[in-house]
C-alpha cells in the first residue's frame, strides 16, 4: 500500500522509525529480563518490577505499532464477501471501512487522553515496589494512539475524497489486503531471500 498510496508514503518514514524504536525497546527488555532471571537465581537479588515494565511495554509497543500496521494494511478485514461485490459498491464499503476505523482511532485517542489526564490530576503512582508515575507509560501509550488516530484520519479523508473523484482508485488503494500483500507482510523476508542453501538431499 505504501508504494502506491501518496498519503501512506508520506507518513511511512516516521511511523516506521517509531516501530523500530519499539523493537529496540522490546529487545532491551528481553535482555533486562535475562538479567533479572540470572540475578534472582545466582545472586539472590531481584531487580523488582521487570514484570511491571514488561506490562507497560506491551501496551506501549502495541499502540506505537498500530499506525505502521495500518499503513501496510495489516489490520485484519474479512474480505470473503467483498471480493464478490460490484466495483462501485466495493469502493463505498472500502471507504466506509477506513472512515469508521478512523472514528474508532480518534475516539480511542480521545478516551486515552482522559486516562492520562486523570493520572496527572491524581498524581497516580503504581502501588508497586517500582512506584511508577502512571503518566509516564500512559503518556507513551497515548502517543501511539494519537499517531494511529492521525494516520487513520489522513487515510480516511483521502479515501473519502477519492470516493467522490475516482472510486476505482479507492479499490486499488483501500481494498483489503490482497493475498500477495498479505504474504508479503507475513513472510516477505523469507520469500525474498529464498532458501539459505540450495537443498539437495
Amino acid at each position: 500500500m505504501t508504494r502506491d498510496n501518496p498519503v501512506a508514503r508520506r507518513l511511512e518514514p516516521a511511523v516506521r522509525l517509531v516501530a523500530i524504536i519499539g523493537g529496540w525497546w522490546l529487545l532491551g527488555l528481553a535482555f533486562l529480563t535475562c538479567v533479572e532471571i540470572l540475578c534472582r537465581k545466582l545472586l539472590n537479588v531481584s531487580l523488582q518490577g521487570v514484570d511491571e515494565i514488561g506490562a507497560y511495554t506491551l501496551a506501549v509497543f502495541s499502540t506505537l505499532s498500530f499506525a505502521y500496521a495500518l499503513l501496510v494494511k495489516s489490520h485484519t478485514r474479512v474480505d470473503f464477501l467483498l471480493a464478490h461485490l460490484p466495483g462501485p459498491l466495493r469502493a463505498l464499503l472500502n471507504a466506509t471501512a477506513y472512515v469508521l476505523l478512523a472514528a474508532l482511532a480518534v475516539f480511542a485517542a480521545w478516551r486515552g487522553w482522559w486516562v492520562l489526564e486523570e493520572s496527572i490530576e491524581f498524581q497516580s503512582h503504581a502501588n508497586s515496589p517500582l512506584g511508577t508515575p502512571m503518566w509516564l507509560p500512559q503518556g507513551l501509550w497515548l502517543v501511539g494512539l494519537v499517531a494511529f488516530a492521525i494516520s487513520a484520519t489522513a487515510l480516511a479523508l483521502h479515501a473519502a475524497w477519492l470516493m467522490l473523484t475516482d472510486w476505482r482508485r479507492v479499490n486499488r488503494l483501500y481494498g483489503p489486503m490482497t493475498i500477495e500483500d498479505e504474504v508479503e507482510t507475513e513472510a516477505g523476508a523469507i520469500l525474498a531471500r529464498g532458501p539459505v542453501e540450495e537443498f539437495r538431499a
Partner: peptide
Amino acid sequence: SYTPSMTALVQHFGAIPVTLQ
C-alpha cells in the same frame, strides 16, 4: 512482594523481595 511498603518491610528483615503476578 507487591506493594512499596511490603517491599520495605521484607527488605528490613533481610529478605529479597520479588515481584510476581
